[in-house]
Simulated scan of single mutants.
Amino acid sequence: MDKREESEVINGGRDVKNVDRCDACNGALTAGLETWHFVCGTCGLEHSTLQPQINEIESIDEAEREKALKPIRVHNFGVLLDWLRGRTARPAQAGAKPRLLDVGCAHGWFLEQAAAHYDVLGLEPDAAIAKRALARHLPVRNGYFPQALQAQEQFDVIVFNDVLEHIPGVTNILKECAARLPADGVVVVNAPDSRGFFYRLSRVFTRAGRQASFERMWQVGMPSPHLYYFNTKSMHRIAAASGFKVVAERALPSIVAKGLYDRINYAGNVSKLRSAVMTAGILALLPFMKLLPSDITVWVLAKQAD
Score class of each variant (00 low, 15 high):
Phe160Gln: 07
Val140Asn: 01
Arg263Asn: 14
Tyr118Asp: 03
Glu66Ile: 04
Ile264Val: 12
Ile296Gly: 09
Val189His: 03
Asn18Arg: 09
Val39Ile: 11
Glu249Asp: 15
Ile282Tyr: 06
Leu134Trp: 03
Ser194Tyr: 01
Ser234Gln: 07
Arg73Phe: 15
Glu249Ser: 15
Gly185His: 05
Val189Trp: 02
Phe214Tyr: 10
Leu301Cys: 03
Ser194Gly: 11
Val103Trp: 00
Glu112Cys: 10
Ser59Asn: 14
Gly243Ser: 11
Ser271Met: 10
Gly185Ala: 08
Gly221Glu: 06
Asp126Thr: 11
Gly209Leu: 08
Pro139Ile: 11
Ser48Tyr: 00
Arg195Trp: 14
Tyr228Ile: 03
Phe198Ala: 13
Ala280Ser: 09
Ala92Gln: 13
Val246Gly: 06
Asp20Pro: 08
Met222Arg: 12
Ala183Asn: 12
Glu165Met: 06
His107Ala: 15
Phe145Gln: 02
Leu285Pro: 02
Gly209Phe: 07
Ala128Gly: 10
Ala89Gln: 13
Ala148Ile: 08
Ile72Ser: 05
Ile54Gly: 07
Val74Asp: 14
Leu101Val: 13
Ile264Met: 11
Phe110His: 02
Glu8Tyr: 11
Glu176Val: 02
Met217Trp: 06
Ala191Thr: 08
Leu292Asp: 09
Ala241Val: 07
Gly32Cys: 06
Ile255Glu: 07
Ile129Pro: 00
Pro52Tyr: 01
Met278Gly: 07
Lys272Phe: 12
Asp184Ser: 15
Ile238Gln: 03
Glu124Trp: 06
Asp193Leu: 10
Leu286Thr: 06
Leu181Asp: 02
Leu227Ala: 05
Glu153Lys: 08
Trp218Ser: 02
Gly268Ile: 10
Leu111Tyr: 03
Arg141Met: 09
Gln93Leu: 15
Asp156Trp: 06
Leu100Ala: 08
Tyr144Ile: 04
Lys70His: 13
Gly108Pro: 01
Tyr118Ala: 04
Gly41Thr: 03
Thr171Leu: 04
Cys25Glu: 01
Ile238Trp: 03
Thr171Tyr: 01
Gly104Ala: 09
Thr171Trp: 01
Ala257Ser: 15
Gly12Thr: 00
Gly169Trp: 00
Arg21Asp: 03
Leu164Ser: 04
Tyr199Ser: 08
Ala276Tyr: 05
Cys40His: 02
His226Leu: 08
Pro287Thr: 07
Gln53Asp: 09
Leu149Pro: 01
Ala130Ile: 06
Glu112Thr: 12
Val16Met: 04
Asp20Phe: 14
Arg21Ser: 09
Gly185Arg: 02
